[in-house]
């Protein structure tokens, strides 16, 4: 690479020495150090990621088996030879699916409002965006408190008091899979909104114009042209939300996760066993951590496979979408 010094007139002489070669005058130490340090930071992060994943896959694989993912904990949670994680897989799956039912419509509609209707400069839009960003930063344990205070005590307690006044035991006013899912839906709302907004913005304005010029109303254009185009982005948002929610434990600690249940949840008001919570239990409550280590690692592996696989799919869809948008823009 030619350096600056070669093209600058040498000092003390009026003649420009154009015949000087475009060669590096000396080793550029600063460049070397700078690139080295930042590169090292990058490498270190990659190494940490590789160590964590490698450690979990290596040890997790040992305890992993078909039996492990297809059997429950009826023989005891800490029984290395018998215990499985099927109820936890089902519980976690059920709660994220239930969550999706709430968060996807609300998130997509909010994003549609923000990109298609709201004026981007108005104070009101700024407030909505600020609220979305802030919601993304609320600590997960606070969501747990919120779920308990609002969904369970206020809404659930209200239902019990006014609609089912004669039950001796609370029906809705107690932790349940329904409340856990709602709590997670509030938590993942920003994920869906941001991803959907991004894909709505990437749609070429020409398509909206084409539809409007044909006499379509704004709503018809949104429903028939804009949303179908944004589908990959909406899907990405949904998957990212699911992946984020699947691994969260703090928000469900008080809103629905059970330490142990003999049967699977049957109703929305039942509690459930959860993969992430199970990891917490196995790591901190085990009577003999050395002995239960194989099932602990295997459970972590299952949880990680679930969340990272979803993440990976979302990243792939997003990368493909971006490439397509770039092609379309030319």
């Amino acid at each position: 690479m030619p350096t600056a010094s070669s093209s600058v007139p040498s000092q003390g002489s009026d003649r420009k020495d154009l015949s000087r070669p475009f060669r590096k005058s000396s080793l550029d130490v600063a460049s070397f150090v700078f690139g080295g340090l930042t590169g090292l930071a990058t490498l270190l992060i990659l190494a940490i990621l590789a160590i964590i994943l490698g450690n979990i896959i290596w040890h997790g694989w040992a305890g992993f088996s078909w039996r492990f993912v297809t059997s429950g904990t009826s023989q005891g949670m800490f029984d290395v030879d018998q215990a499985g994680v099927l109820p936890m897989i089902l519980g976690t799956t059920a709660r994220v699916m239930l969550m999706t039912l709430f968060v996807l419509p609300i998130g997509v509609i909010t994003a549609v409002y923000l990109t298609e209707y709201a004026s981007s400069t108005s104070l009101f839009t700024r407030i909505i965006r600020g609220a979305v960003n802030n919601l993304a930063g609320v600590p997960s344990i606070v969501f747990g408190l919120f779920g308990l205070g609002f969904f369970i005590n206020f809404i659930g307690g209200g239902i019990d008091e006014f609609l089912l006044p004669n039950r001796p035991e609370p029906v809705w006013g107690k932790p349940a899979i329904f409340w856990a899912s709602l709590t997670l839906a509030v938590m993942t709302l920003p994920v869906v909104i941001v991803a959907t907004e991004e894909s709505l913005k990437a749609i070429l304005p020409g398509l909206r114009e084409a539809s409007l010029a044909l006499g379509a109303t704004k709503l018809e254009t949104i429903v028939m042209i804009v949303i179908p185009q944004a589908m990959p982005g909406i899907l990405t948002g949904g998957i990212l939300a699911v992946s984020r929610a699947a691994g969260e434990v703090a928000p469900i600690l008080f809103t629905g996760a059970a330490y142990y249940m003999a049967s699977l949840p049957r109703a929305l008001t039942d509690q459930f066993m959860d993969l992430g919570y199970h990891v917490f239990i196995l790591s901190t409550q085990s009577p003999d951590i050395e002995r239960t280590r194989p099932i602990l690692y295997a459970t972590v592996l299952v949880l990680l496979l679930l969340t990272l696989a979803l993440n990976f799919v979302a990243i792939l869809i997003r990368a493909r979408m971006r490439r397509k948008m770039r092609v379309a823009a030319h």
Binding site: L204, G206, L207, E209, A210, S211, L212, A213, L214, G215, A216, T217, I225, Q229
Partner: peptide, 18 residues
């Protein structure tokens, strides 16, 4: 909407729907 139905438009850049 009624107006645009009766006054059609073709744009500089072709914009077929995907």
């Amino acid at each position: 909407i009624e107006l645009r139905k009766r006054v059609g438009m073709v744009f500089q850049r072709s914009n077929p729907f995907p």
